[in-house]
Nucleic acid binder design. Structure first.
Lengths: 228, 228
DNA sequence: CCCACATGTAACATTTCTGTCACACGACCT
DNA sequence: AGGTCGTGTGACAGAAATGTTACATGTGGG
């Protein structure tokens, strides 16, 4: 469960602490130090969750939360407030402002991550677990198994994701770049040739059942999974 | 999705109203009027969900919730709090007490049922008190015992819950995060690596009968209980 | 208060996976 | 044929995931 999280925090040390922890948990972190920056970023691309410090230079975190709740585009983005004070009054104001949760500083990274997880779960629909059958190959996300001609095949994690993507996008040719985005993720920085190597490994893994030829090379374009 | 629901409510009229609605929806309702009664019932048989009124004679609903969260046996039972007040303050205390959700009186039956459904959905199905037999292993929730090849095995509490969950969800791969949610509970803040250690302990406990190999590691994904 | 047990973490060991290279091979063009 | 480009292939070192052990803490019972 990875997400794009916008951290609005003016104190560099705390911002860094948070970012490190969130990224360690696999989240993608975008940072800004005040409400203005937050609004600008949000207008550009909606994050999955906002982590807002209560005290900000200029517009306060609570005010920012309220404002985001008022606009249609941003109304549904979960918000977690960070507050240094533990006053009940603040908590009330925070929840009234529309925050989904709040975390009191000092907080443990674990606690922060747990809250984020809980908040995200409330809005995240489950990803598709449906098995895929193509050309005699069967891939089951739930059990994380692949069968070729009835026999189980052994794939590594990346091979599995790659095959899953290809099998759910039959016939179409995917460039290395597209595959990197879809299988590795938007933000990763790896050589395009890496895709070749994994295609090679995947083919090798599919070889025992003879299904390796289902993955076709389209010279100058990329790779494709054939129907038959 | 039907469940055993313990309703802790001192006002007879409201208790009746709730019970009628829940039963109409197919749930089995157990009733009590105070915290003491609730604890007694819980000690006898664990319900699938607790519906607790905020205001109770004697021990308050919040205190009861906290107490249940504190004990190993009852930690994972979902709790929904009923409150007559709409104060945000209550909301906060309720969430801090470990409630999964809360409903403000007066509430519509539809709303109550919706919340119950939502809370129950987070919990995996099939975790009943029925004995489970898989691959020569037998687990009896009622007696809290496990037999491997006919001989009794000795497991710790967490090992038992973990094995129970795995045995009732054969073949499927569970991420560490999912296992934490299902075996430890939603609200617990522990490291994911803790799962590994308990898997290790569980395997060791199953070793005497050779059933330790039934628990498979799926690299990059999590763990699974094999069929055979 | 002491003891046995259970639990969560840290630390270290081991295995597996990944990304890159360097080079081989084959396709395509002139 | 020769040359160029794109892809296949095998090797390898670093990174990541998991196994394993040890330890500190907490808890409940004698």
């Amino acid at each position: 469960m990875t997400a794009n999280i916008l951290v609005v925090e003016d104190e560099p040390a705390i911002q860094e602490l948070i970012a490190v922890n969130l990224e360690h948990a696999g989240h993608h972190v975008i940072r800004t130090r005040d409400a203005e920056g937050a609004l600008q970023i949000v207008n550009h691309a909606l994050p999955d969750l906002l982590l807002i410090d209560w005290m900000l230079p200029g517009t306060s975190g609570v005010a920012l939360a309220k404002q985001l709740r008022h606009e249609e585009r941003t109304r549904q983005i979960p918000i977690i407030l960070l507050t240094a004070r533990s006053s009940e009054q603040d908590k009330i104001q925070g929840l009234e402002a529309g925050a989904d949760d709040y975390v009191t500083k000092p907080f443990s990274p674990r606690e922060l991550l747990a809250r984020i997880k809980a908040v995200l779960r409330r809005r995240a629909p489950e990803m598709t677990d449906e098995p895929v059958d193509v050309g005699g190959l069967r891939l089951e996300p739930a059990t994380r198994r692949v069968f070729g001609a009835g026999k189980p095949l052994q794939l590594g994690p990346t091979e599995f994701r790659l095959l899953h993507f290809l099998m759910t996008h039959i016939e179409r040719v995917h460039s290395r770049s597209q595959l990197l985005d879809q299988v590795w993720g938007d933000h990763v920085f790896v050589e395009e040739r890496t895709v070749d190597v994994h295609i090679r490994r995947l083919r090798k893994s599919l070889e025992p059942s003879g299904h390796d030829r289902l993955i076709e090379t389209v010279r100058g374009a990329g790779y494709r999974f054939a129907r038959v």
